[in-house]
Design a protein around this nucleic acid. Structure first.
Lengths: 158, 158
DNA sequence: TATTGTTATACTCTATAACTATA
DNA sequence: TATAGTTATAGAGTATAACAATA
């Protein structure tokens, strides 16, 4: 196994086999939202509005399921469906203030690092963050917006 | 957000939002195994044998579901159930040669890093690996065996 | 009496296929 | 004719509860 594979394997182990599953279960119990809905909300929070289809591609599920997920979000007042000004077939999902606030809480819970991170000094943590930042910045899908829809929203005047 | 949170957040983004989902889907299609079964097999491969209950705790699902998962593994010739020599209620799941081989293939597919890792130099990759290694080593659940069952198997003479 | 694993069952999550409206 | 989203439905994934065997 090469160097990058080694590093990525360690990274995966930390991300997946830490307390992530318990965190998700706890969040689900507290918010009464399913894992899919939570994932959609978190994804939505990094967005200025995204069409149903784009959301489906972005989180990797069937478009038909997005209908159910967004129905859930809407029922909880976390998102709304807005018409696309240039294509009346398209609906744009927009996060509400309540949704943004909840997404922030969820994000902060998920970002609590495993206790083992305290094995690193401040200097090492800074190094680690810099290295990871460099990789994330190099990934077009990860840095910033996945699929900017800003134009459409600007055209709507919001 | 603190330094460790920042680093862990980046780490999570790389682990989850890379091509992991597609990889799992591809593996599932190729092997005809469900995600849960694949997860169980990969977990099992880091083991000298593990009881049903320990496996349930380790992958965080209900013990009753482990029955189904291990049934699947056994049906595919990837694992066997062995009696525990000291407690006849307990069954120890042991990976077969075929299982170990498949687990290796799966592991190598999952460990292919996102292309963005090429943004790091060899020196930086080595640094990154060292830092992550240090964290993983500090996590008792991640470094080596989660719950050594070696004694029991030694007692069995294998 | 408590614990390990299994069975039977029901619930949740997600995809497939057919449909409507718009392009 | 092709595409965005929805509906109805079926299938996979997973947990809960009751049970058998052993401790």
């Amino acid at each position: 196994m090469g160097l990058a594979e080694d590093a990525f394997d360690l990274l995966r182990r930390l991300a997946f086999e830490g307390e992530q599953a318990e965190k998700m279960a706890t969040l689900g119990a507290q918010t009464k939202l399913s894992p899919g809905v939570i994932k959609t909300l978190v994804r939505l929070a990094r967005t200025d509005g995204i069409s149903m289809g784009e959301m489906a591609r972005s989180i990797g599920c069937d478009p038909s399921y997005i209908t159910a997920l967004v129905d859930d979000l809407a029922a909880h007042g976390l998102a709304t469906r807005e018409p696309d000004p240039v294509d009346r077939r398209v609906k744009i999902v927009v996060i509400t203030e309540k949704g943004r606030s909840l997404a922030g809480e969820i994000h902060s819970v998920l970002s609590v690092p495993p206790a083992a991170f305290s094995a690193l000094s401040r200097t090492e943590l800074r190094q680690l963050r810099e290295l990871l930042d460099k990789v994330v910045a190099a990934d077009p899908a990860l840095s910033g917006e996945a699929t900017p829809r800003t134009h459409a929203l600007k055209a709507m005047g919001s």
